[in-house]
Amino acid sequence: MMLIEETAPAAEALPVTALREHLRLGSGFDSPEEAAETAALTGFLRAAMAAIEARTGKVLLARRFRMRIDEWRDRLAQPLPLAPVDEIMAIRIDDGDGQMTELSAESWRLVPDNQRPLILPTGVILPNVPRRGSVEVIFTAGFGETWQAVPADLAQAVLMLAAQYYEDRGSDSARGGMPFGVSALIERWRQVRVLGGRGHRGGRR
């Protein structure tokens, strides 16, 4: 499976002010030093978000992804590797010779789920993928466009981890591990990762 993040959260959506307050940093002076500090805090927040999303498989702020798999994991149901998913923009099948065919939206449906969203066929099974072909799925995932949409425990975990990165900046131990308090906050959101495809083509033609 190949998963590409096609868009990134806007800087304005990140809780920079909340992180300043968490760290008890001053603000409001509109100086070059504060601008540099804001840029650094934004970087720490993005790094903390990435770490927590990698541990949980949950996308905190909404953005678009492109998933490419060599075949369906199961033609009865294809799980998606991220959650929550609120929209699938397109599903295309590549025949292996450069010909892309977009599946009709009437041939499949999305089953939203905070743990394991699924693509299900509206008929009996999902369409066949040619032996040298692949499937491309373009979708949006995330709890929402703004930080207020992020569940409180995940939002707090990001602030705590970003604060840890800030305090450990310049240290050899920076970003080395997940603090216990952060791990405790995200534990209920963790899931067993699902595979994008079976990796077996014996029954395809």
Rank of each mutant, 00 (worst) to 15 (best):
Leu80Asn: 00
Ile125His: 15
Glu145Gln: 13
Leu60Val: 09
Gln78Arg: 02
Asp97Lys: 10
Arg64Ala: 12
Met100Tyr: 04
Ala47Thr: 10
Pro84Lys: 01
Asp113Ala: 09
Gly123Tyr: 07
Gln78Asn: 01
Thr56Phe: 12
Ala83His: 03
Arg75Val: 05
Ala51Asn: 06
Ile138Lys: 12
Phe65Leu: 08
Leu110His: 02
Arg55Leu: 10
Pro121Gly: 13
Ala47Met: 05
Leu45Gln: 04
Met89Val: 05
Glu106Trp: 08
Leu41Thr: 06
Leu80Tyr: 00
Ala39Gln: 08
Gly133Cys: 11
Ile138Phe: 10
Leu76Phe: 09
Pro81Ala: 10
Ala47Glu: 08
Val137Tyr: 03
Leu41Val: 06
Glu87His: 10
Pro112Cys: 14
Pro84Asp: 02
Thr42Cys: 06
Pro79Thr: 02
Gln78Gly: 02
Val129Met: 09
Glu145Gly: 12
Ala62Arg: 13
Leu126Arg: 01
Pro127Phe: 05
Glu106Arg: 13
Gly57Asn: 11
Val85Pro: 01
Met89Tyr: 03
Gly98Leu: 07
Leu60Ile: 09
Arg68Asn: 05
Leu82Ile: 06
Val137Ser: 06
Gly133Thr: 09
Leu45Cys: 04
Lys58Gln: 14
Ile52His: 01
Ile52Leu: 15
Pro81Glu: 08
Ser104Met: 08
Val150Ala: 08
Ser104Trp: 10
Arg68Met: 03
Pro112His: 07
Gln115Lys: 15
Leu103Ile: 09
Thr146Pro: 00
Pro112Gly: 11
Glu102Val: 05
Pro117Leu: 12
Val124Cys: 03
Thr122His: 01
Ile138Met: 12
Ala39Gly: 05
Arg68Lys: 14
Gly144Leu: 13
Ala105Val: 13
Arg92Met: 00
Ala50Trp: 08
Ile125Asn: 13
Arg63Trp: 07
Trp72Glu: 03
Gly123Ser: 10
Asn114Trp: 04
Leu61Cys: 01
Arg46Val: 03
Leu126Cys: 07
Thr101Asn: 08
Pro117Arg: 11
Met89Ile: 06
Met100Ala: 06
Glu102Lys: 10
Glu102Leu: 00
Asp97Ile: 00
Ala149Phe: 13
Ile125Glu: 14
Val135Asn: 13
Val111Gln: 15
Phe65Ala: 04
Ala83Gln: 04
Met100Gln: 12
